[in-house]
């Protein structure tokens, strides 16, 4: 018999991955040019975690999904309008920078504080989900640190699957080298999962769910407390876009055989 799960998904916003990014220096350290103007999306790997959470919650009766987000309020709100239509969840918003240069250790601390403050959270039956890395920091550090702060030592990274088995144990697939997966069985919650892409498609938008969610999301956003996170003493020596414009030799209007020959020689070289 499986207890209802309390799935806490940590995920914030990142600039829509298609946008052009350019670093600028600010008094608080490096940032992105026009950061507040860039369209934002829910961090893609965290979003996979959220979709997986919704799927698990559907399978285990009585389960609940929380989304804990640290980000600037105004931006969070806009992103929530799209995510909120997917399935029911409760938002816990923490107001603060969502930029990639923010210190992971401090983000973990702030998230742990927010999770510990969720009323009625059943920590014994908690699954802590998030992206195995974020598209902004891309470090793969926050979730592990958060797990430590919450005292959870059953942790998994690069997760593509997490299944609740009939006996209540969890079967988890983690990505490892060579396109392979490491398979683990954990007796049950609490665990931490840093998600890779998972296997689920993005759920369709359901306006009715959106309406329901927004009624709780708006107050959560209004209540969002500012978090103490910063860049924490880092000395930035250089922050730049990769300089690697190459001189591209364009081969055209030559017989296909010649091109093929050139490629073959290059491969064999």
């Amino acid at each position: 018999m499986t207890q209802p799960l309390h799935i806490v998904v940590c995920g914030s916003i990142v600039p829509d991955p298609l946008q052009t990014l350019e670093p600028v220096s600010t008094p608080a350290g490096p940032g992105l040019k026009n950061e507040m103007m860039l369209p934002a999306v829910l961090d893609p790997w965290a979003a996979c975690g959220l979709f997986e959470a919704a799927n698990l919650a559907k399978q285990v009766a009585g389960s609940k999904v929380y989304l804990v987000s640290l980000g600037p309020k105004a931006k969070l709100q806009q992103v929530m309008m799209t995510v909120a239509q997917k399935f029911p969840f409760e938002l816990v918003a923490v107001d603060g920078p969502a930029g990639g240069f923010t210190e992971a250790a401090q983000v973990a601390e702030a998230l742990a504080g927010a999770i510990n403050a969720i009323p009625g959270l059943d920590k014994a039956n908690m699954l802590v989900f998030g992206g195995w890395a974020s598209a902004s920091r891309a470090a793969g550090a926050t979730m592990q640190m958060l797990g430590e702060k919450l005292g959870i030592t059953d942790q998994f990274q690069g997760v593509d699957e997490c299944k609740v088995q009939p006996d209540g144990s969890l079967r988890i697939l983690e990505r490892i080298e060579g396109g392979r997966h490491q398979v683990s069985i954990c007796q049950g919650p609490p665990i931490v999962c840093g998600w890779a892409t998972g296997n689920l498609p993005e759920p369709p938008n359901n306006p009715q769910v959106g309406m329901m969610n927004m009624r709780a999301i708006m107050p959560a956003l209004q209540k969002a407390k500012p978090a103490q996170v910063a860049q924490d003493g880092v000395e930035w020596v250089t922050v730049q876009l990769p300089q690697q414009r190459r001189d591209t030799r364009i081969v055209k209007d030559v017989p296909i055989e010649e091109m093929a020959q050139e490629i073959v020689e290059w491969i064999k070289k």
Partner: peptide, 20 residues
């Protein structure tokens, strides 16, 4: 010691140092 690493996936390259 100064470490080179990426931010925003492979889109911004930094070199940094820290006291901690």
């Amino acid at each position: 010691p100064a470490v080179s690493r990426w931010y925003y996936r492979q889109r911004i390259e930094t070199t940094l140092s820290r006291p901690q």
